[in-house]
Design a protein around this nucleic acid. Structure first.
Lengths: 205, 205, 205, 205
DNA sequence: AATGAATGAGCCTTCATTCAT
DNA sequence: AATGAATGAAGGCTCATTCAT
């Protein structure tokens, strides 16, 4: 069984790890607040408090930071998705598994974000989709496409179906986050029921 | 009853109208080709052929142009939606009406765009959602929310439901546009069936 | 016979011509004072007093400015060289013609430069070879290579000879400029005599 | 009589000497490949493999490195020039001696450079004049000026003459290096003959 | 009202140099 | 003494916006 060993780091290594993390955190924040396209490298750097040039010791561009965030999101999401998917033997349980994993992750991430923000900040800023969430989202999409290819939801246009599932999941999850307190289970149930019933309806035609 | 009167315009006014329209057209194009966030005022102006300064005689910023495009989209979409909605007496027909109006509009807009592009251009550029489409989209959303408020789809969480409808419509419409030739009716049927069956399923709980 | 006609220019055109010229002048100065490689676009702009961005309305890079200066130098030098060369029928007169043209031009340019500088400035700064002078120099080189190819200085390694002529001309011209007052004729005579006698010596071997 | 004593060095001192030398070698290379003006301290350090900060334990700037290279060049060149000059009793033998020393040194340096380069590298890069070569060059100039001051080449403008000698030597040497294989003796003879005959011609006036 | 050059803020990136380890 | 990350000053370049013509 794999075991994580934390080697003691020298001060230098510590700072490096911290800075790298600080950049990722700052990037996540500004991406979310200003929208990926509108963010400049300087926006990220400003948020970290580091010097302008320091950024380039860690990443060469905004794109690289986004890639790192994506990878991070995918890495953290993968085990959740995997666990949920493990017991799924039929289309229905599978869909529930995938959607539930997504909603759980989204909820969890949002909680982390809320925790670091003041009440003011929480209400002021619109949240934009970060590279991380896009990556996670993409995983779900792939997973659904995969399952459809394997024969789930027979008789339904697979391309449209995947799109529809994605659409429902994304939009309902977004609404969920706006509620206080929010109820992950209820939202998941809603989305899953809607999708499964929808598919049944499509197969009846 | 309101009546539109077309007053004859002097030359000056004519040019003004033409320029205003030229800016909107150019903006629509570049928004669609480069994505709203990446577009600069200069991009719009370049496409126009007008002088840089002239832009500011009509709009004060990219945002204002976007607003104008949104208004334009809404204005053109409104009658379609209204007509479709006129005969709808129950929830089901209503949903079909709204979704169909949306798909028709999307398809029509896309056709216009295709018509002005060479084969090369059509394949090269990814299309991005323009302010217009967002406005249209928003109209549909409002319309659905409205209908739910009036008692459609009883027993279902109205907020989530509107979100889910929107999600399905948007994603399926996007996929539709990627097919050649595309079949508006099939896509509409898919989305409508999915939504209606989904709602039924939700009500059964 | 060609005739230069000066069309009256609007104020805008006037300013444009002036700015373009101001950039060239500034560039010539800083190239000469700091050396081409060390000059930045901002150095040029600073010297003009224009805004940073304005530079790019006229040239896209330092290189383009250098090219313009080169072209200008060549354009002004060509008639001088041509005139001097017109009567040359043998190698000896030809060499004298080319060298004299070069020394005249160099002296003339230097005078212009001196005229615009205070006594202080004249002594402080080392002068570096500007793109203009390089272009002029290059013309002379080509001209000599050309003449050797046509049979001048028979029996002598043409490649080395051209190099040697160039070397003598450049170095002697530079020394000439350091004297006050300087004597173009004496310097020209020196260089020419050295070259011609040198060639004779080489042919005797 | 001064005597060089080689003291045994401790490990520390050894490394120091090695690093200092490594920096000089790296600098020589990049100066030659990229041109002195275009080289940054980072370029030198990169070539070295040392850490950025280490550079400043040895030199405080690119200029200091250049000075060290100059000194090194002069130091290596001095004995050659001295030896050649020892037997020279008249102006003619002296000139030959000085020029020959220069051409020999240049050829030798170039050989060393070629030896450490692959065929590719040899052809790709233009070679630029390094601080070393400038120093060596300067030595030759001083030497000639010196000799003229002592009465060589009577009746000729000493300033112009030194310049002319320098011009011939530099340009012909550069051409020589471009030939494969190159013939140092032929090039030297060319330059020497040209100079001596030239001087004779000047004295006849 | 149209024009398009001028402006200067601001972005990305590199670099010389410092300094804690 | 060596290391290499941090710093902040420039430099190249683009852009929104203004304003004289």
């Amino acid at each position: 069984m794999p075991q994580v060993v934390y080697l003691p780091l020298g001060k230098r290594e510590q700072t490096k790890v911290q800075n790298r993390q600080a950049i990722l955190n700052a990037a996540r924040e500004v991406f979310s607040e200003m929208g990926y396209d509108n963010v400049t490298v300087r926006d990220i750097v400003r948020r970290t408090g580091l010097a302008a040039g320091t950024f380039y010791n860690y990443y060469n561009s905004k794109e690289e930071v986004a890639a790192a965030l994506s990878a991070d999101g995918a890495r953290r999401f993968a085990p959740i998705l995997k666990a949920q998917r493990a017991q799924a033997t039929d289309w229905e349980t599978f869909v529930r598994a995938a959607i539930a994993a997504y909603f759980d992750f989204v909820a969890h991430e949002h909680q982390s974000w809320l925790a670091t923000r003041s009440a003011d900040e929480r209400s002021i800023h619109a949240r934009n989709e970060t590279p991380e969430m896009q990556a996670v989202f993409s995983e779900v999409r792939d997973c659904i496409v995969d399952e459809i290819a394997r024969g789930g939801a027979r008789g339904v246009d697979p391309d449209f179906l995947a799109a529809a599932c994605i659409g429902v999941a994304r939009e309902v999850a977004n609404r969920m986050l706006l509620r206080r307190p929010y109820n992950t289970k209820a939202a998941t149930d809603f989305a899953v029921t809607m999708i499964l019933s929808g598919v049944n309806g499509l197969q009846d035609i």
